[in-house]
Design a protein around this nucleic acid. Structure first.
Length: 114
DNA sequence: CGTCTGACGCACG
DNA sequence: GCGTGCGCCAGAC
C-alpha cells in the first residue's frame, strides 16, 4: 500500500502493476484497485487508466477488472464488444448477461494479497 | 483557465 | 432495492 497520488505516472504504474497481479480465473473491481493505491474514491480513474492500458506490454489483463457488482462495463473498450467476455470464459469464468457469475466467490481482493 | 466527460462507488431518500 | 446526486482526478476542448 503506497501513496501514488504524487504523479499520474505513478498512478498508471500502480494500476497496471496491481492488475497484472490478478490471478487467472479471478476478477476484481475498480474500487478495490483504487483502495489498494490509497485513493478509495478514484475508482473512476482506474477504469480510465485501464482504457489506456490496451495494447501495452506486458499485457495488462484488464478483462479481469469489472465493476462492484461484477458487470462488464468496460467491454465496449475492447477490440470487439465480445472480447472481454470471451477472455473471461477462456479462463473458466462464466459470464451471463454481461455479468460475472459467482462474482463474489471469484473476487480477488488486492489488499488481501499485498 | 473553465467545463465537460468518464471501464465507478457511495450516501441518501 | 432503485433512482438521483455528488466526489473523485486526469485529459480533451
Amino acid at each position: 500500500m503506497v501513496a501514488y497520488h504524487k504523479k499520474s505516472v505513478d498512478f498508471f504504474k500502480a494500476v497496471y502493476d496491481i492488475t497484472r497481479l490478478i490471478p487467472q480465473g479471478r476478477v476484481t473491481s475498480y474500487g478495490a484497485i483504487a483502495k489498494s493505491i490509497s485513493l478509495p474514491k478514484a475508482s473512476r480513474m482506474v477504469g480510465w487508466t485501464l482504457s489506456q492500458s490496451i495494447s501495452k506490454t506486458p499485457v495488462v489483463p484488464a478483462h479481469r477488472v469489472v465493476n462492484r457488482i461484477g458487470r462488464l462495463t468496460g467491454k465496449n473498450h475492447f477490440p470487439n464488444p465480445n472480447t472481454m467476455q470471451e477472455l473471461l470464459e477462456s479462463e473458466g469464468i462464466e459470464v451471463i448477461d454481461d455479468k460475472v457469475v459467482r462474482f463474489k466467490e471469484l473476487f480477488w481482493d488486492p489488499q488481501a494479497e499485498l
